[in-house]
Write a protein that binds this DNA or RNA. Structure first.
Length: 258
DNA sequence: AATTGTGACAACCGCGATGTA
DNA sequence: ATACATCGCGGTTGTCACAAT
């Protein structure tokens, strides 16, 4: 763990970094992230490189809003598996666990809020991004909604999952619901909502073996390259850029305005 | 027009699992 | 058997864009 050289860069990736990373991943495959991080000259951790690739640069990624079908599938699978985002993501080709997680967080938080405060039973059906999900135009946003802005570290989103359950759950609890309860209810209602289409998707999801973020096929043929790690110093960023003027576009990135 | 609230997305962190020497 | 390195996952936080006020 103390292999950490100097200090690694953090924060948003630049275009140059992206290009570099893509090129090196094409060279060496999407494993060995530490190795890639080193030889690429990127001042990033392997972890960071992997994340950037998986969540953003992978060619198989779908971008844009979730389709209603995907939304339903997420709801259904979450009801089934809970916060197993990576597992859920495997059933949604082109979507990442991070994306699904973010989606769930954003859209379900509202519902959880509503559950916590069953004030207005006549909650309107406002479709979020053309879905059939029940969300309310609730104004009951309290500070727990944006927990990170409040001083308390307890996130509203905390599911009390495998970790960090204990202390979180035993907190003040001015509300009766534990997070587990809330999620359970959400899941329950979600499943009910999606019932009409459930068959379609269960069928699909079982028939189609979705290509999960496919691993590059070059990997096997490049195994030998792994031995060259001593040559890392020879590989500079300019090398990569010159050899692989790889082109890609992002819908939204720090360096490309829209 | 300025301010505020909210949604969406990108990225980091901590931890457990797994692989390897 | 074990210590260490790396990977992968889930949770959390930061930031930007846009809508509402």
């Amino acid at each position: 763990m103390k292999m950490m050289q100097e200090e690694n860069r953090k924060g948003p990736w630049t275009e140059q970094e992206d290009i570099l990373l893509v090129n090196f991943v094409h060279l060496f495959g999407d494993r060995r992230w530490d190795f890639i991080a080193k030889v690429s000259g990127l001042n990033r951790t392997g972890k960071s490189c992997r994340l950037r690739w998986v969540n953003y640069l992978h060619p198989g990624l779908k971008r844009g809003k979730m389709t209603p079908q995907e939304e339903r599938l997420v709801l259904e699978l979450h009801a089934k598996w809970g916060n197993r985002w990576s597992k859920i993501a495997r059933k949604l080709p082109g979507r990442t666990d991070n994306e699904i997680k973010n989606y769930w967080r954003t859209h379900m938080r509202k519902k959880a809020q509503e559950k916590k405060r069953p004030v207005s039973p006549t909650s309107s059906f406002s479709n979020c991004s053309s879905s059939s999900m029940t969300t309310t135009t609730t104004n009951t946003q309290d500070t727990s909604c944006h927990s990170r802005k409040s001083s308390g570290k307890v996130s509203f989103y905390d599911t009390g999952g495998s970790r960090s359950t204990g202390e979180m759950m035993s907190q003040e609890t001015e509300d009766v619901y534990s997070m587990d309860d809330i999620w359970r209810e959400i899941d329950h209602s979600a499943v009910n909502i999606i019932k009409p289409v459930k068959d379609i998707y269960s069928e699909q999801s079982h028939c189609l073996s979705y290509p999960t973020l496919a691993s590059p096929t070059w990997e096997s043929s490049l195994d030998s390259i792994w031995n060259m790690d001593a040559d890392k110093s020879k590989m500079s960023s300019s090398f990569a850029k010159d050899q692989f003027p790889f082109c890609f576009q992002h819908s939204r990135s720090p360096w490309s305005p829209g």
